[in-house]
Every structure is written in structure tokens, then in C-alpha cells.
Simulated scan of single mutants.
Amino acid sequence: MDWSSLIQIDKQLLLAVNGSESLFIDGLAVALTTAATWIPLYLALFFLVLRNNESMKQILLIVGCAALCVVLAGTVDDSIVKPAVARLRPTHDLQIGMSVDVVDGYRGGRYGFFSAHAANTFSIAVFFSLLVRNGILSFLLVLWSLINCWTRMYLGVHFPGDILCGLIWGGLVGLSVYYVYYKINVRISAGMKFISSQYTSTGYQLIDIDVVINVLFLTFVYTLIRACLVLL
């Protein structure tokens, strides 16, 4: 199978998952893909870090690593990869652009390879999963990232190939940044191992993790309510 065939398959897959006749799903996708929607989640993760790290050095290290995830995953993509590759978004594609279902006229920027939403969210999901080591939180963070990926295809602003490459790059970034964090943290922390039903193996209290999980749940509820308001 040659490259042009793969591109055609990518386009057909996009058209298969793009859009619907439902105003509710349209509103839900818009709410989920909006960056401001997830500010409570970012604040909850910051709260988790503050509550479970003893020194300012450790806190600043984690915050710096989280910021590095975003810079390497999303900023590099938007500033370097997208202009260099110059793959048109589905909404701007000369072949299928007129067939793509858009919501409220939203078409995104001109280029879409690869998805910064996919790279950013998955890098954060991977980094915090390795940092905290809690199965439920890890599952929900990965689910959060994948839901964000779905919205980008539903809204017609990214091909599945854009999403897949974004996830791969975001995963590599998350793993690499955690490796950097681990090497530095070994030097500045006591390196204690927590063996308790109240803590994860890396020292994060389950009660504080529950705060992040609840914020995630409430944010999803908010998006559902916001989507319902579209129907009024």
C-alpha cells in the first residue's frame, strides 16, 4: 500500500467519524474541546502536587516538567511541525473540505499535522500517570486525552492520522519528561517508598487523588449541561 492510498484511507476515516445530525453532540464536542473547560482539572493537579510534596524544589520541578510537556508536545508542533509539514486540515482540504461537517463555522487554522490537542493532553496524562501511580487516575487521564482527540475529528479539524501521530509524540514527550523528572528528583528528595493503603507508591494520598477524580467527573457533568443548553 503506497502513501497516497494511506492518505485516502485517512480521509475516509475522518468523514466516517466527523459530525452528526445531533445539536447535543455538537454542543458536547465544542464544550469538551474548549481549553478553558479544563482549567479546573489543571488546578486540581496543581493542588495534588502542592499537597503531596514537601519542598518547594520538588513542587517547582514538577510544575516545570508539566510546562515542559506542553512546550515539547504542543508548542513545538504549532511552531515547527505544522508549518514544515504543511498538511491542510480536513476543513481546508481541497478534496474533501466541502464535505466536512463543521460546527458554528469553526474550521481551525490552515494546517493540522499533527494534533497539538492530542500531543498536549496525552503528554500530561502520561507524565502524571507515572508521577502519581494510581490506576483509576491514570485511566481517567488517558480517557480525558482520548475524548479530546475524538472532539478534534468530530469537529473536522484533524484527520485520524494527525491524532495518532499526536498521541505517539505526546506519549514520547511524557515518558521523556518523566525520566528527566526522576533523575533530578532522586538528587533532591529522600527517595522514600510508601507502603500504605492511604498512599500510592510514590507518596500521593488517595484522598487528594479523589479530589482530582471528582473535579474530572464534575467537569464532564458541566460539559453535558452545557450541551443541553444548546437545545433550549
Results as ranks from 00 to 15, higher is better:
Leu50Glu: 14
Ala35His: 09
Glu54Asn: 12
Ser22Phe: 15
Ile39Val: 14
Ile188Tyr: 04
Cys165Arg: 01
Ala119Asn: 08
Ile188Phe: 07
Ala16Met: 07
Val49Ser: 07
Ile209His: 00
Leu94Val: 09
Ala36Trp: 06
Ile213Met: 09
Phe24Ser: 01
Lys57Ala: 15
Ile163Thr: 03
Ala119Gln: 09
Phe139Ile: 07
Val70Met: 04
Leu131Asn: 07
Arg226Ser: 14
Leu218Val: 02
Asp101Glu: 13
Leu164Asp: 06
Val180Cys: 15
Gly166Ala: 08
Ala36Arg: 11
Leu175Asp: 03
Phe139Pro: 00
Arg87Leu: 06
Ser201Thr: 05
Arg87Ser: 04
Leu167Cys: 07
Asn134Arg: 07
Gly97Arg: 11
Asp2Glu: 10
Ile62Arg: 01
Asp210Ala: 13
Ile195Gln: 06
Ala29Glu: 10
His92Trp: 15
Leu94His: 10
Val177Thr: 01
Leu206Val: 02
Val70Cys: 02
Arg107His: 12
Val142His: 06
Cys228His: 09
Leu60Cys: 08
Val212Leu: 09
Tyr199Trp: 11
Cys149Tyr: 12
Cys165Ala: 14
Leu6Glu: 02
Leu175Arg: 05
Ile225Asn: 06
Ala16Val: 01
Ile9Cys: 00
Tyr204His: 05
Val211Thr: 02
Trp38Thr: 04
Val211Asp: 01
Pro90Arg: 13
Gly191Cys: 07
Phe220Val: 08
Met192Lys: 13
Ala84Cys: 11
Phe113Leu: 06
Pro160Cys: 12
Val215Ser: 08
Ala35Tyr: 04
Leu137Asp: 07
Leu224Glu: 05
Ser201Asn: 01
Leu140Gly: 07
Ser196Lys: 05
Arg187Cys: 09
Gly64Lys: 06
Leu146Cys: 10
Thr34Arg: 13
Leu23Lys: 15
Pro83Asn: 07
Lys183Tyr: 06
Leu6Asn: 05
Thr121Cys: 02
Ser138Met: 14
Thr91Ile: 06
Tyr204Gly: 05
Leu50Cys: 13
Arg89Trp: 15
Thr75Gly: 00
Met56Asp: 04
Leu41Gln: 09
Asn53Ala: 10
Ile124Tyr: 00
Ser4Ala: 08
Ser138Asn: 11
Gly171Glu: 03
Val102Glu: 14
Ser55Gly: 05
Cys165Lys: 03
Leu6Ile: 07
Ile59His: 05
Lys193Trp: 12
Leu164Trp: 02
Gln12Ser: 11
Ser123Pro: 03
Gly97Trp: 13
Trp169Ser: 14
Arg51Asp: 06
Leu32Gly: 02
Val30Pro: 02
Tyr181Ile: 03
Ile9Asn: 03
Ile39Phe: 13
Phe127Asp: 02
Tyr111Ala: 03
Thr219Val: 08
Asn214Leu: 13
Ala66Gln: 08
